[in-house]
Amino acid sequence: MNSPLVSEPLFHVGPVPITAGVVATWAIMAVLSLGSLVVTRRFGLIPTALQAALELMVETVDSQIRDTMRVEPGPYRSFIGTLFVFILVANWSSLVPGVEPPTAHLETDAALALLVFAAVIRFAVRAGGVRGYLASFAVPNPVMIPLNFIESLTRTFSLLVRLFGNVMSGVFVIGIVLSLAGLLVPIPLMALDLLTGAVQAYIFATLAMVFIAGAVSESKPADDTSSARNNP
């Protein structure tokens, strides 16, 4: 059985090896961006069914951001929404025969976790400047600086391992059952995988929101945070 920790290159573009996960990722990106381009071109005041469904999705993302981060969703909508939709489609891409979800490989998950890591820094610097962001490591007191620093690295790592472990174990179990039992037996497991995939996409997006909200509120100037704490 192939190791789930390595991925074999399919072909080479010049010196760069291209794996199946990269091809699947680009296919998902193309489908998502072209689909939204085509759909948003024909938006009107009176929504069609498709437009209503999309608006419902954006509304849901907005309300989740509002509930979790306690701020207006404007600056965060695109990042969080894209993260959620991409991971959801990537997890569910195993429904297409022959496609292995790109999130079942370490590289895609590492890239997503690094995106969250960078987004935390970016939003925190935008909220409180570089000084404010660096000062947020010394909350509640300077003794915690090494711990806070390590935490910002380990939580990125745990985001990566969580998504990878969940999706990969689903794919792995289906492979084992398929090789042991036969053609139609793993279908209930695949149904369970759909649930796991949706929950993991939701959790990844929620944790990204929690990390960003925490860094932003700690990086803000002191008078802002005290007023925010007084009226929760």
């Binding site: 190791s3 390595v6 969580r162 472990g165 969940n166 174990s169 929950v199 959790i203």
Partner: peptide, 28 residues
């Protein structure tokens, strides 16, 4: 339920860590 889901994900990470350690032992 929202907080529950996030908490469950946090707890589940411990089991996933064990799984990853097992995979490292077996494959890498």
């Amino acid at each position: 339920s929202r907080t529950l889901f996030v908490g469950l994900a946090m707890i589940e990470t411990m089991a996933i860590y064990c799984l990853v350690i097992a995979l490292l032992l077996l494959f890498a």
